[in-house]
């Protein structure tokens, strides 16, 4: 199957890309990795008149740490985040999340920013960046603005980006203490969208108590969700089995799933509970391991 005919522009700078978006407005779509966009164009579910290919814009490539945060360029492929030897040990949730997206071939092409801009509630990055308290920077005709991840997703496949705005990069705060993470996904096979996904990111302070806790949920609401009450419960505490169970129950309450072919709402909510409990158990084990190593 072939996409409808469209005009193709491949700007060499961000400036030109934004100009193109201003010129074509709603008729244009940004093409990054294309792993979601091109399939729906082939099925002729989407038929943009213009594709603005941002792959030839050098300033969107790569990643770097500056100051208090990690900056990941919009064109960074999932596979880069999955395999990078420097990044993965220090940002374990990035590596774990990247490694479970779609399939290895899609990960070679798909980008973190493209996935966020697509805003599929079942996608993995939304939940992970909620857990990491990330943000994105966007460039539009009115300049740059930074959007906290909590403010990015409005509804199913809907973000608060303006038609002339492009995500230029993703920001992740640098962890301060010991870090452990877990990404759990129920998929019916590799390449399936998540039935339920849970992303966990925990940082502990010198005392071993939790300084920062992030719990993001995928596929259990119209957007990726944060399990806020469960996070609050964890902060300042030690991870005990009782606390983990309590957090898991709270996280399940935060889920707002719909019944469909992948399972009932009750089912999905309960999977959130099970995954948060298992994930925090794994996080506790990892933190114990890290403390033992550093001692």
């Amino acid at each position: 199957m072939f996409p409808n005919a469209f005009e193709y522009v491949a700007p060499a700078s961000l400036e030109e890309a934004v100009q193109a978006l201003v010129r074509y407005g709603d008729d244009a779509k940004v093409l990054a990795g294309g792993q979601s966009l091109l399939p729906i164009m082939k099925l002729r579910v989407a038929a943009p008149a213009v594709l603005v290919d941002i792959n030839r814009i050098p300033e969107l490539a790569g990643f770097r740490e500056d100051g208090q945060e990690l900056w990941v360029g919009a064109l960074t492929r999932h596979a880069t985040l999955e395999w990078d030897q420097d990044l993965v040990p220090r940002y374990p949730l990035l590596g774990e999340t990247a490694g479970s997206i779609a399939d290895p071939l899609v990960r070679n092409r798909g980008t973190i920013a493209g996935s966020l801009a697509h805003a599929d509630p079942a996608a993995d990055w939304g939940a992970a960046l909620l857990a990491l308290r990330g943000a994105v920077t966007v460039r539009g005709s009115r300049g740059d603005r930074r959007i906290a991840i909590d403010d990015l997703f409005l509804d199913v496949l809907t973000t608060n980006l303006e038609p002339d705005e492009i995500i230029t990069g993703v920001h992740v705060p640098r962890p301060t203490g010991h870090v452990a993470a877990a990404s759990l996904k129920l998929e019916r096979k590799v390449g399936d969208f998540a039935v339920v996904g849970v992303a966990l990111h925990v940082e502990t302070g010198a005392s071993g108590a939790i300084a920062q806790a992030g719990i993001g949920l995928a596929a259990v609401g119209p957007t990726s969700l944060r399990a806020r009450e469960a996070e609050t419960l964890l902060v300042g505490q030690q991870l005990t089995p009782g606390l983990i169970r309590e957090a898991a129950d709270l996280a399940a309450k935060a889920a707002d799933p719909a019944s469909d072919q992948r399972g009932s709402a009750d089912y999905k909510r309960d999977i959130v509970r099970v995954f948060v409990e298992r994930g925090l158990g794994a996080v506790r084990d990892r933190l114990t391991g890290i403390r033992a190593e550093s001692a």
Binding site: G34, Q35, K42
Partner: peptide, 22 residues
């Protein structure tokens, strides 16, 4: 739907599904 991978080729050394690259 970019599912099967029968079209896999290497592009600059990286395997990609060539039905999902223009």
């Amino acid at each position: 739907t970019t599912s099967c991978g029968a079209c896999t080729v290497l592009m600059d050394g990286t395997p990609v599904k060539s039905c999902t690259v223009l």
